[in-house]
Design a protein around this nucleic acid. Structure first.
Lengths: 240, 240
DNA sequence: CGTCAATTTGAGTCCAATCAACTCCCGTGG
DNA sequence: CCACGGGAGTTGATTGGACTCAAATTGACG
């Protein structure tokens, strides 16, 4: 999952086998902390997240890290390139994953339906990554963090209804490495949002959005937008 | 094209119809400055660059811009998502483009061979974009510029042989918006590389790489790698 | 309750952005 | 041919936001 604002396309995420009758028959369970694969491994399976959260990362020689994406339910991870994975992939919270053997996707024996679905998933991925470029290249720290929270709440509410609550299964340093910041800056920015009354931090992994409009405004670069007239919580819930 | 160091996969770029006999039969010419499409336009064609250079951009409401990628010969541009383009696309230098109608890629009438090629192209695109994340999120200005030059020279030399020369068809502000910097910083960083004897700037659009190893070192974050053994004064003299 | 890691907060620094001036390059027209 | 104009690029001075280093606090877990 790429944290972006214009992510309508993510709504289309669905099981690759949605056409079939059986509801994802052979999903396997993975424990938190487990590693799915490393960068450079030969690709044998592609995974779709049924539940839980994954983390895709890349490393630079000197240890600098970039979190490429988080894998939320509905997402596909493990896109191959030249037969290899190009990120590491770890399980953040206990997850159920649907694995697809690469052999089912290529060659004459390949399932053309699956092949088509995979292309659609890859094209959505490209679009989402393009959004994320804007964030990494052109947004300030507070815009990045606000964007991140906006998409998380949007993503959450899609399943559980509009609850204005974000669950952050990942650590602060995961967030930092995703947004191109440091853990200190992420922490400071969250504190600032809390002090301004825009969010409340229930615990490290649970954040309540008190002023969704203000948060959205900040994510778009509109400074000082707390309570422009009155917070239209209903409208925002609909919008996000 | 995404400016990254580990871009071996780009070597695989090839015409979508490589299997066919005819050498890209219906490539059309486009003038510099032409617009191929805008973000949000309905996708009807996907393009492969035969010659020339394209620029893919995104805009934020307030005018901030991110150059998503440059389209060099061999690259595919116009990946659709939900039937729409998700970037603007403009022609930087007079280009010949091979257009593929979207109808040829989907539905029952679609060419399955083309479909497969498109998926491969999309997967390469994803991998290249992942590399670029690291650059935008975690690299310093000099690392970004050095990386950019490294990949440009690598990309050039692929066709014309190793000539240690980079042609920059785009403006400084295009480079800046691609790397997440300002034009001033790009300009300053190039000057710094020139003063250190690592590159020479023939003219605004042509750069000679005098110390490829030092440039590569800088792109990877190794500081102070000029002249590892002895300074090649001849190279410098030639350049200046 | 104690330990240790993760997170938060604080103080100071630095890199890149900003604001501003100047140069260079070209094309245009007197 | 040269003066002029204007945009792109470069360079300089200053500012500011995020980083770094360091300390305090919280929280998870035995």
């Amino acid at each position: 999952m790429y944290v972006t604002i214009s992510s309508e396309q993510a709504n289309n995420a669905r099981p690759l086998r949605s056409a079939s009758k059986q509801p994802t028959p052979i999903a396997k369970a993975f424990k938190a902390g487990a590693n799915l694969y490393f960068e450079g491994d030969r690709v044998e399976r592609i995974y779709q997240v049924c539940s839980g959260v994954l983390r895709l990362t890349r490393l630079l020689e000197d240890g600098r890290r970039q979190v490429i994406a988080f894998g939320f339910p509905g997402d596909i991870v493990g896109f191959p390139c030249d037969g290899r994975y190009h990120t590491d992939c770890d399980v953040l919270t206990e997850a159920r994953l649907q694995a697809y053997h690469l052999s089912a996707l290529e060659g004459e024996s390949g399932n053309p339906e699956l092949h088509k679905e995979l292309l659609q998933a890859a094209l959505r991925e490209i679009s989402a990554m393009q959004d994320h470029f804007m964030m990494l290249g052109r947004k300030s720290a507070i815009e990045k963090v606000a964007s991140f929270l906006c998409v998380l709440t949007e993503r959450m509410s899609r399943d559980t209804g509009p609850r204005n609550q974000a669950f952050l299964p990942m650590s602060r340093s995961d967030i930092a490495d995703f947004l191109g910041l440091t853990t200190e800056t992420v922490s400071r920015t969250l504190s600032q949002l809390r002090k301004r009354g825009i969010i409340a931090i229930n615990n490290i992994h649970t954040i309540m959005v008190l002023q969704p409009q203000a948060l959205f405004g900040l994510s778009q670069g509109h400074e000082g937008m707390d309570c422009p007239t009155k917070p239209d919580l209903h409208g925002l819930a609909r919008a996000c």
